[in-house]
Design a protein around this nucleic acid. Structure first.
Lengths: 349, 349
DNA sequence: ATGAAAGCGCTAACAA
DNA sequence: TTGTTAGCGCTTTCAT
């Protein structure tokens, strides 16, 4: 590991000068040819600053704490972490990840992060829900991911549930469906209430009647299949907006049982909660992609811009971006989700 | 933040003494009542060591680098990270996570980790496969997770693919199935070859004939469904061992189409690759649980024991453990996977 | 425009 | 048994 001292010796200047130059604070303080020599030496010697040593003086570590509550076993997390990491790397930050089991040791992990001197925190939940922000996080730079703070006042990012419901339903409307069902969740979470609102609004905007019998909320597994089965049996929907891909599976199953095919006899749009469904299991499922990656990315950008007190300007790698909100906003912001077209929607216009 | 200096001042001793005491190296070097006073002061003042400052002297950070290749968007990762984190916390380590996009910037992230002074590395792939270990990792303490090193010589942990196939098939044999099919993958990866071997061995041990027509490898989506459909149509298997849960879905779909029910008319055992399937989608699916959590946990334990040169002894939190291998071994080790019983196996003995 | 010196919190020789 | 001193790599006054 090359140190500033070594560069100083080699260049015949003092470490202070090296420090100034290498931190880009040499404008009008160091003669430009000296600066050049220093930079050259640093380059050839492969100098890389030691962030830990630096932090001892500055008490800034360029490390970010990522606190999440991956309850036991969750498949959702990936994208968020990925997005956060990409942003962190672009901005020269490192992510320390910690998971709190919520009930016990909620602050243990946070305290550890603090000892390691992280510059700020992200608190992420693995599905969109309302949380009590741990008190140990109050006062520190903090951004919420996929979570609403019960007491408000904390910047954060969540999917735009309303538009998920709206766009999905709209897609079915555009395809010419005339009896569009919503297969929702029985949990009272923002995702359910928001998506359902979007569903109803889309119907309304399309001048289609809202039929409460087509608006179901299911739970469990066998019961859910039974409910969907009975929905099909009695009311013959020709389009289904499904709370998530698991719910969509019920429709696939029931359709298969009665000799119908999704994309031919019925149309289905589902929220791609588990991601894998759209990729491996049911490529034929038209999905609304949750913006996990984008949320992670946005969170880091926002956090860093607060830490450094300046706007940051990096963009996620192309192709992964759904619809990024502006950075740096206060309060919670919602990302619009992308509709990913597959062929599970029959066109009958 | 309380520092040693403050404790020293308050206690009327030198910081060296404080350091000795607080690091537990005071046996026979510091009078026990002084030690007691120091410890008491540390306690009441809420002293917590500053790991960064310490690392400047010791060049040991108690930070571990977790390098993974979450290709764009993977649902598998969660468990590994979770297990690794739990182990790390028990052992007083912190995890820095970084993802390498493999093609570009493979070493960028690793170099960053190195600058931050991690004590060791984990290199994890998000499905069991053979990898070239990045050269930048050579010579450093390193443990592979869910990966085989192409050139060998690196300790690591992978699932016991053979036993996955063996146990799953055995389960179907025990249930009285007489025509057991294997719905495999067309990828030539350890998971496929290993599981298939286990399948054949289990048949053999049960004295059942191996029928190559029941041993299929599918790919794609529609083609896969078609293949399974034709398998059912022509050879009427009564038991299916499926490469993973996505493959199992094909069986569900085809069964539904012909009015058959899994768990009644046919039996299915699948590998729970995506985890979510077993939980949400198909609780009726009897699954072999991949030991992601366990692998992460084991990896950290092994890594730490190599770093510190001593055996570590922590156990994962109960209820999550399939079958942990012993710690500290050299070379790659395989974890036996747990079979999770659901009711997708019909008993017809 | 440059350098000397102090110090961030901690550890480890070496003295005493 | 305890304290003094030096220094890890870096930043930052303050002299020069």
């Amino acid at each position: 590991m090359t140190t500033m001292k070594e560069i100083a010796r080699k260049t015949g200047v003092s470490t202070s000068t090296v420090s100034l130059v290498l931190n880009g604070r040499d404008r009008g303080r160091v003669k430009s040819d000296i600066a050049k020599r220093v930079r050259a030496a640093a380059e050839t010697m492969g100098y890389r600053p030691n962030p830990l040593a630096r932090s001892l003086r500055t008490s800034r570590t360029r490390m970010l704490g990522f606190v999440s509550d991956e309850i036991a076993t969750t498949p959702y997390a990936g994208g968020i972490i990925l997005g956060a990491q990409d942003a962190a790397r672009s901005l020269g930050y490192m992510m320390l990840t910690v998971n709190t089991d919520e009930r016990f040791d909620e602050d243990g992990g946070i305290a550890a992060l603090e000892r390691y001197g992280v510059d700020g925190f992200m608190y992420a939940t693995m599905y969109h829900r309302t949380v009590d922000v741990p008190r140990s996080l109050c006062g520190r730079p903090l951004v919420l991911v996929d979570a609403d703070a019960r007491n408000g006042g904390v910047p954060g990012i969540v999917p735009d549930e309303f538009h998920i419901g709206y766009d999905a339903t709209r897609r079915l409307v555009d395809a010419g469906c005339s009896r569009i069902a919503y297969v929702g969740s029985r949990d009272r979470i923002p995702a359910q209430t928001g998506r359902r609102k979007g569903y109803r609004q889309a119907l309304d905007d399309a001048g289609m009647p809202y039929d409460p019998r087509l608006d179901v909320a299911v739970t469990g597994n066998q019961p859910a299949v039974d409910d969907v089965d009975s929905l099909m049996e009695r009311f013959h929907p020709d389009g289904f907006f499904c709370f998530n891909d698991a719910h969509a599976w019920y429709v696939y199953e029931c359709a298969a049982r009665r000799g119908m095919r999704v994309g031919r006899d019925v149309s289905v749009v589902g929220v791609d909660n588990h991601r894998v469904f759209a990729q491996t299991l049911a490529p034929r499922l038209t999905t609304v992609a949750l913006p996990h990656y984008e949320m992670g990315f946005w969170a880091v950008c926002t956090l860093v811009s607060r830490i450094e007190g300046v706007a940051v300007d990096v963009r996620p790698s192309a192709g992964l971006v759904a619809d990024m909100p502006q950075f740096g906003g206060d309060g919670t912001v919602a990302v619009r989700c992308a509709l990913v077209e597959k062929d599970s929607v029959a066109h009958r216009s």
